[in-house]
Amino acid sequence: MLSSGVKIDSTLLRPQSSSSSETSAPMSSSSDSNDAEDMADLGTCAPVENPISRGDSTSWKFSFNTANTAGIGSKDILKSKFFWNFGVEAIPSKESAVGKLNTSAVTYVMSGVENASVEFFLNGKLWKKQCAPLQVNGSPITGCKCTSSAATVDVAKGGVATWSVTGCSSEEAIASYSWTGISGDGESASYTFSEKGMTVKPGVTVANDDKSVDVVECDEVMSYDSSSPDYAIAEPLDHVDLPAGLSVVMMGGSGDLSMCQIECTAQELLTISLGTGDTLISNYVVLGLIDVEGCKGPLEITLSAPATCTASWSKD
């Protein structure tokens, strides 16, 4: 049941030119108000809960922009009568009330994308705002993961990174994969880095035949250039200052190595994750033996804090 002071309009009429009060002037539905002026920067309109499941409810909210260029103030908005249109599949389908920036609960019984709009009559104009869409999910999609083939790619070797979506489960057939930020074909996507120091973290929207979607975040990938490294330990016991986060260090070891050792010193508790799969944890100073391949060529080093690092290696 709607709260006091709110009514459901079965028919919304156009504003009457002879009306003495703009705040109470009846209005047309969104489908008939072709002469309505878009609210431009008066504010934004969106569902409060998004997405929702079929049969569930959400409310809609108009967020007023006090710095709008139309010169309309908060008091004007609160005196205006809002006319909300939630779509024919919604229960209720319409609602109106003075100063109604937040609607009552609206229930959606069909899955898919639902749209709503809001209108009000003020300063001799009919203002209209199309709201951000609402996603109503039917049969759920669960378990999706989007992983990259590697955390870094070398621009000097083509710079191509790839991602794939796995693990999706749904009672209805998976219908599509829509990639954001990169080019994709079905469950897989790729991106070619043009320079070092770039990071890409794409997303993918998985949809099924019941009009449900699952928005999945993918692994982040960083590019480096082995022909022009930012950091290098060319000889054993060389030192390099590294920032917190992921860095790629060109290591100078070669041939058959019998030992590879990494040492890093920080001003706080330090954790090091290496591209070899090794993880080293200690207070202030981390010293550990790692896979000998880590001392050859590019080595991914992820630090929890800035540190000064060195390496040593020896041959058989």
Rank of each mutant, 00 (worst) to 15 (best):
S178N: 15
P26L: 09
F193D: 07
L274S: 06
K100D: 07
C168S: 15
C260G: 04
D214W: 01
W60C: 03
W179D: 05
K100T: 00
I174K: 05
A305T: 02
G5V: 10
V155R: 10
G99I: 08
E171L: 05
K296S: 05
I52T: 09
T310E: 05
V216S: 08
Y177T: 04
A150R: 13
E235N: 14
S183C: 00
D291P: 01
K211F: 15
S273W: 13
L299A: 07
S273R: 13
D256Y: 06
E172L: 03
S178A: 15
A244V: 05
V215N: 13
S21I: 12
S227L: 12
E293Y: 00
N123M: 08
K61L: 11
T107E: 10
A25Q: 13
D230V: 02
T199G: 01
S30N: 12
S24E: 13
S227H: 09
L126H: 14
I141F: 05
N68A: 06
S212C: 08
G99S: 08
A67V: 07
P92C: 10
V6Y: 12
E217S: 15
S17I: 11
K7G: 12
E37C: 01
G288K: 06
N68P: 02
S314F: 02
K81Q: 15
D214T: 11
K125F: 05
G138R: 05
K61P: 00
W179S: 04
L101Q: 14
N50E: 10
T310Q: 08
D35I: 06
L242Q: 04
M251D: 03
S30A: 09
K94H: 12
I77M: 12
V200F: 06
V215Q: 11
